[in-house]
Design a binder for these strands. Structure first.
Lengths: 149, 149
DNA sequence: AATAAATGGTTGCATCAAAAAACCTTATGG
DNA sequence: CCATAAGGTTTTTTGATGCAACCATTTATT
């Protein structure tokens, strides 16, 4: 088989991986979520080669995750998340929570997510039942839907 | 710059990517979450080369995500998730939800996650405040903790 | 008992796509 | 005129992947 592509797989997870599943994309999105907007900022923060960053941003634009626009004041480009991009936040947060818990920095939590208005920390990402009870992994089951094979 | 490794980055997201951030790992974990236990099953379902699957499983064992044990009846190996592995479920579900919504199968939802006891679908993965209100991406802010640079 | 077939890998090799490095272009601002 | 920003292009590395062959136990078959 040739280099396996995610796209032909009829799997929602694989479809997401087709968009964000390479080495740099999630780190780029992390920086954009954290407020970085400009090409040069991203490049310096990440230590990524320019051509790779340009290719990833182009791909993210084609996938409808990121939009490029001109800044009102200056004449530099800005990259901002589209609504579909913003909806990746649960993925980012779930991964960040896992890493902070299972691969911790000895000095403590690396980052805390708070609600902007109240300043209170958000609830840790987790699976919850329809009526809001937290569920453990074993209490969840997957059943095929109409779009399954 | 050398080939970038995630490990030296002081970032919880990067630490998680060091564990699950390559082409096959999440798909392997998906199958294990869905109840596959045996090497040959995984290999056939995924269409992955045997050496790659063996390498990934070994890595997942070293990282404490998966455990290998002998099945009680037969004499074949079984791979099961450790507690740390089970805690990756929010990541899997968040990605699956995103893919199902933004890269849908025209026939409908590919998979539904239900609560085992009641049979009711679980709540969609999302960010919620301390007291349980759903939050939109813009209402969340990240602040550095004691483990930040 | 001998043979076949399945399971669960390991090893070595060829390939190939993605990452890095180097260099070029255009525009803008001081 | 020089620096900065935002890329594009091209070439070279490198590490991940895929393939095939081999191996060691069991389990089933003749």
């Amino acid at each position: 088989m040739k280099y396996t592509s995610y796209k032909p797989m009829n799997c929602s997870l694989a479809q997401t991986l087709a968009v964000i599943g390479d080495r740099w994309t999630l780190l780029i999105l992390r920086d954009i979520f954290f407020g970085q907007k400009r090409f040069a900022q991203l490049q310096r923060n990440l230590g990524i080669a320019k051509n790779i960053l340009a290719a990833r941003l182009k791909q993210l634009m084609e996938e409808g995750i990121v939009e490029k626009r001109e800044s009102e004041s200056g004449a530099h480009a800005e990259y901002v998340l589209t609504p579909a991009g913003l909806e990746l936040q649960p993925v980012l947060l779930a991964m960040t929570h896992w890493g902070d818990k299972h691969r911790p920095n000895p000095k403590g939590e690396r980052v805390t997510f708070i609600e902007r208005e109240t300043g209170k920390p958000i609830r840790r990402m987790g699976v919850v039942s329809e009526d809001g009870r937290p569920l453990r992994a074993r209490e969840v089951r997957a059943i095929p839907g109409p779009g399954a094979d």
